[in-house]
Amino acid sequence: MAGIIGYGAYIPCYRIKAEEIARVWNDDAESIKKGLNIREKSVPGIDEDAATIAVEAARNAVKHAGIAATDLGAIYVGSESHPYVVKPTATIVSQAVGAGNNLTAADLEFACKAGTAGIQMLMGMTESGMIKYGMAIGADTSQGRPGDALEYTASAGGAAFIIGKEKSEQIAEILATASFTSDTPDFWRREGASFPSHGGRFTGEPAYFKHITSAANLLFEKTGFKPSDFSHAVFHQPNGKFPLVVAKQLGFSEEQVRTGLLTPFIGNTYSGASLLGLAAVLDKARPGEKIFVTSFGSGAGSDSFAIEVAEGIEGKRGRISSIDGMINGSKIYVDYSVYLRNRNSIKKS
């Protein structure tokens, strides 16, 4: 089966605390922090966007994988904040990682699950022998309307995964994948609109929970695995609370979810969210451990994966900085006005 040859991530160094956002809108910070299980979120620098984040993550992934970038046969970048509506982020990434010109590339959009959709596409392409390696990236500088509840979580970051079928090169094998898709309008952003709109509580039960549990159950049926077979479980994490709730519904313990739950510390990186969670788990996982991953993209759909960590993971450790280092390394806290400035929401001209 196809597997992960290498991965890389990027999280901007800027942070804004939930208290600072609450201060501006006269919200009760403590109840928000508790309700969403969020302390702070990452903020892009004024010169960062989904393309620069994708490039940084992609460069780390190539370094981690130890492959020649020119051996990449496909690059897919999933994001809901591509810098251009027309003109691919994927070509910027392929040029910047030195992938050469003999490859296919495209941008993907499926709210927060475009990155895992890219991985599934590459599984098929590598297993069929169409390409040797492919890279799928989920990266976002997601937006939340000022004053909206989303503002506490919508953050910036991304992760890149290089997929290939050669078992000896894999750091983890993807044992199976299953998806669940329906037309569920829980969250959207129209062409030309600066901020997304959402259906409030409708984003919960009929959207996030239904799709994740459905995809997960499909995967369990397909493989015969049960939650206790996995050392770690990673879910899409729009806030710090939903993944814990859905985990419990499916029969996972909080312990299984802990390592891959990053939202309380960096916010919801949208297309990057479940992939960053997986990267954080891989940073620590031991060969033989199984990892359960389920993404969720509004609109709506979920991709579920069963992954088994391979021996090869040990040899590639330490090649790039860890997710933990990016989360807890040198951070710069910004206030709300600098946050707005970095997001280009206030301008001099």
Binding site: D47, A51, T52, E56, Y84
Partner: peptide, 16 residues
């Protein structure tokens, strides 16, 4: 590192 350098206004190219 890889960053945006500047953009040609609101509608023009972004230069990385």
């Amino acid at each position: 590192v890889f960053r945006r350098m500047y953009a040609d206004g609101e509608e023009g190219l972004i230069h990385y």
